[in-house]
């Protein structure tokens, strides 16, 4: 079986016209990206605003097609126009702003929107919608108007809308950036459950460090390129390097790093409070 997501020397350019300059600028949003994700993995992509992580995400869903190199989703080349809907069905996408991605005026109709577009028969749509809503814990809200839900609930509805399309993988582009801490927790829990229990491959794009602790593999982007990769522990052990990419680490990791530089014997890349307490006492 092919990798679920595979990118080779991926690059994306666009032309920017500004008022004053005669010559349009060629902007290089991402370049020479190599990526390979296996089925069932939980991948996190970190990077500051403008590092190119959103551009990469849009390539996975074929909302953008590469200017150079190739992107395959489950073996399908995203550059082939005739396979466009196949790619989008296989790789679902959840966006940042919860208000701007809910189409339906009632929760269950919104979740049904994707299956309707895929031409799924009516009875099956209902089954899929029930199933998707219960997986994100929103079945009790099916008749509600999305406008009355909290930010975390809206994002869970958006995730259900993707789940109902029965994708192989879900790309979440900063799904928690506009939520409060409780909403963030809700959404992250749902994403982790989908990954663990349903085996859905997850690509989580974020700049909240606490959210990537659970990932199998972390990529860090800067200037349109992948500049670091590894397990969370490997990546988080390099606190200074991360800071140079305008990122930080969770407080516990930073404290452990500070103590270690002060001479306290501690293991590399401590990620949780328990680990630190264990090591110190």
């Amino acid at each position: 079986m092919p990798s679920i997501i595979k990118a080779e020397k991926l690059g994306y350019y666009y032309v920017k016209y500004s008022d004053d300059s005669e010559n349009p600028e060629l902007i290089n949003a991402i370049r020479s990206i190599d990526l390979s994700v296996e089925r069932g993995e939980f991948i996190a992509v970190l990077g500051h605003n403008g590092s190119g992580k959103s551009t990469l995400a849009k390539h996975i869903n074929a909302l953008l097609v590469p200017s150079e190199g190739t992107m395959w989703i489950d073996g399908v080349d995203t550059g082939q126009e005739e396979d466009l809907w196949k790619v989008r069905q296989k790789a679902g996408m959840v966006f940042q702003n919860p208000d701007n991605q809910i189409i339906g005026t009632v929760v269950d109709e919104d979740v049904g929107f994707g299956p309707e577009n895929l031409g799924v028969p009516t009875d099956d749509i209902w089954k899929r919608v029930d199933d998707a809503l219960s997986k994100v814990g929103m079945l009790g809200f099916r008749d509600r108007s999305p406008g009355k839900l909290s930010g975390g609930q809206k994002q869970r509805v958006a995730i259900a809308g993707v789940v109902a399309m029965q994708p192989e993988c879900i790309v979440l582009d900063e799904p928690t950036a506009m939520l409060d801490p409780n909403g963030r927790k809700e959404v992250l829990q749902v994403v982790r459950d989908l990954n663990k229990q349903e085996g859905v491959t997850v690509i989580l794009i974020t700049h909240y460090m606490e959210e990537v602790v659970f990932a199998d593999h972390v990529y860090v982007m800067d200037g349109g390129q992948i500049v670091m990769e590894g397990t969370p522990r490997e990546v988080f052990s390099q606190v200074d390097v991360l800071k140079s990419y305008r990122l930080t680490v969770p407080q516990v990791t930073e404290l452990a790093y500070e103590l270690k530089t002060a001479g306290v014997p501690l293991p590399e890349g401590i990620l949780t409070i328990d680990e630190l307490v264990e090591a110190l006492c």
Partner: peptide
């Protein structure tokens, strides 16, 4: 306009391509 742009993208990402070949959840 920003919302319109976002929404269009979200609809495309969920395979919306007009009325043809579309089924209905609540016919």
């Amino acid at each position: 306009f920003r919302r319109a742009n976002d929404l269009a993208m979200a609809m495309e990402a969920r395979c919306y391509h007009g009325g043809s070949g579309r089924t209905q959840m609540k016919p």
